[in-house]
Amino acid sequence: MSSAGLPNAFSRGIVTTVHQGDCLVAANDEVTFSTVLGSCISACVRDNVAGVGGMNHFLLATQSGSQRDKYGDSARYGAFAMEQLINMVLTKGTGRKANLEFKVFGGGNIHSGMNDVGLKNIEFVREFLKNEGYRIVSEDMGGSFARRVMFKPQTGRAFVKRLESTDNARLVREELAIASRQKIKPVADDIELF
Results as ranks from 00 to 15, higher is better:
Ser3Gly: 14
Ala4Ser: 14
Gly5Trp: 04
Gly5Cys: 06
Pro7His: 13
Pro7Glu: 15
Ala9Gly: 14
Ala9Lys: 15
Phe10Ala: 14
Phe10Val: 15
Ser11Arg: 11
Arg12Val: 09
Gly13Tyr: 05
Gly13Met: 08
Ile14Cys: 11
Val15Ala: 12
Thr16Gly: 03
Thr17Ala: 10
Val18Asp: 01
His19Val: 08
His19Met: 12
Gln20Asp: 12
Val25Tyr: 01
Ala26Tyr: 01
Asp29Thr: 07
Glu30Pro: 00
Val31Arg: 03
Phe33His: 01
Ser34Gly: 03
Ser34Ile: 01
Ser34Gln: 14
Ser34Trp: 01
Thr35Trp: 00
Val36Trp: 00
Val36Cys: 04
Leu37Ser: 02
Leu37Arg: 03
Leu37Tyr: 03
Ile41Leu: 10
Ile41Met: 14
Ser42Leu: 10
Ala43Ile: 12
Arg46Phe: 03
Asp47His: 06
Asn48Cys: 09
Asn48Gln: 12
Ala50Gly: 05
Ala50Ser: 10
Val52Phe: 00
Gly54Ser: 05
Asn56Arg: 07
Leu59Glu: 02
Leu59Asn: 03
Leu59Cys: 06
Leu59Asp: 01
Ala61Asp: 10
Ala61His: 09
Thr62Asp: 08
Ser64Val: 04
Ser64Ile: 02
Gly65Thr: 10
Gln67Asp: 05
Arg68Phe: 07
Asp69Arg: 07
Asp69Lys: 05
Lys70Ala: 10
Gly72Val: 02
Asp73Val: 09
Ser74Lys: 07
Ala75Ser: 14
Gly78Gln: 02
Phe80Trp: 13
Glu83Arg: 13
Glu83Tyr: 07
Glu83Trp: 07
Gln84Val: 12
Ile86Thr: 13
Thr91Asn: 12
Lys92His: 13
Gly93Arg: 07
Lys97Gly: 09
Leu100Ile: 09
Glu101Pro: 00
Glu101Arg: 12
Phe102Thr: 03
Lys103Phe: 05
Lys103Ala: 11
Val104Glu: 06
Gly106Cys: 07
Gly107Ser: 03
His111Val: 01
His111Gly: 09
Gly113Asp: 14
Asp116Leu: 06
Asp116Ile: 02
Val117Ala: 00
Lys120Asn: 11
Asn121Lys: 10
Phe124Thr: 02
Val125Arg: 01
Arg126Ala: 07
Lys130Thr: 12
Gly133Ile: 09
Tyr134Ala: 14
Ile136Trp: 06
Val137Gly: 06
Gly143Val: 02
Ala146Val: 04
Met150Leu: 15
Phe151Ser: 02
Phe151Thr: 05
Gln154Tyr: 05
Thr155Gln: 06
Thr155Asp: 04
Arg157Ser: 11
Ala158Tyr: 04
Phe159Leu: 15
Phe159Pro: 00
Val160His: 00
Val160Asp: 00
Val160Lys: 00
Glu164Asp: 11
Thr166Asn: 10
Thr166Trp: 10
Thr166Asp: 13
Asp167Ile: 04
Asn168Leu: 05
Arg170Ala: 15
Leu171Gln: 07
Val172Gly: 04
Val172Ser: 09
Val172Asp: 03
Val172Trp: 03
Glu175Arg: 09
Glu175Asn: 11
Ala177Trp: 09
Ala179Asn: 13
Ser180Thr: 15
Arg181Cys: 11
Lys183Pro: 00
Lys183Asn: 14
Lys185Met: 08
Pro186Val: 14
Val187His: 07
Asp189Lys: 10
Asp189Pro: 04
Asp189His: 08
Asp190Arg: 10
Glu192Gly: 01
Leu193Thr: 11
